[in-house]
Design a protein around this nucleic acid. Sequence first.
DNA 1: CTCCTATATTTTGAAATTCAAAGTATCCTA
DNA 2: TAGGATACTTTGAATTTCAAAATATAGGAG
Lengths: 145, 145
Amino acid sequence: MNETKKVINELLVEVFHHILSIEGQMLRERGVDLSMNEVHVLEAISKTKEPTMSKTAANLRVTVGTLTTAINRLVQKGYVERNRDKDDKRKVYVYLTQKAYQIMKAHDEFHEEMINAVIQDMNMEEDAILLRSLTNISNFFKEKY
Amino acid sequence: MNETKKVINELLVEVFHHILSIEGQMLRERGVDLSMNEVHVLEAISKTKEPTMSKTAANLRVTVGTLTTAINRLVQKGYVERNRDKDDKRKVYVYLTQKAYQIMKAHDEFHEEMINAVIQDMNMEEDAILLRSLTNISNFFKEKY
DNA sequence: CTCCTATATTTTGAAATTCAAAGTATCCTA
DNA sequence: TAGGATACTTTGAATTTCAAAATATAGGAG
């Protein structure tokens, strides 16, 4: 494997994991009653267009049953609200509460800060090429799977 | 947030998660008696220089207690062997078995194939810049945390 | 209108995963 | 040789996961 491949692989395998555990540790230290997994669920809800249980579960790549138990806890903790569709009573929409938006704000800021620190010393040309390369990687996965 | 930041964030947040669930699904479909988490433990062992429990746990960013239960299962399933240090009997080294190496081989091939598909149509200049950028990202996390 | 099938979600049961804290064994040093 | 330090395991409690069964609603064929 050449260097580029090794680095990409390292990013895939280690760095991503690393970030998750750092974020999880931050949550615990600050006494937030959420795991990274739960933050992920909140994130998926905020990014899903019409966030029914099925659509949100699909975005998270977990079974709907798994999501149900996660949502049960998040509702109980006051981060999420459930709402049945008026027209199609099979459907359940999930919404973030204000409490959840506050957490998401901190989460987004952490990510933004992290990324800023990473790319702050890149020049314009590098930026353009990196953008193209990463878009390739991102699209590859979206299309292929 | 500019485009580059968005894409990096998307990679961090979604794509890596995506890959994990794909790999997990593959393992289940093929009837392999390992979760992605367990594969990760095997990977960490193979990458840790003198893989004691502490060092391996540190690389995995989990507590040693967590690793102990994971290793218990992996030993029982025949993927890992424990070995006490002759000189310092507090230390326990963990080793992969042949069975584990087979799994790791398939895992590595999946990653290599994935990465090949991603970067196959990049030119030399792009490759150099991508390498530099990704190395930055990778180093940033290693140094900062 | 009444079955029947499809869709959406929840419940259930079992196994994994995680952490913090307590427990055990060994090492090292004053 | 007593003591604290280090390495690991055990324990208890909570989360996370899946597959499969259960529930409820929708929509179409006749």
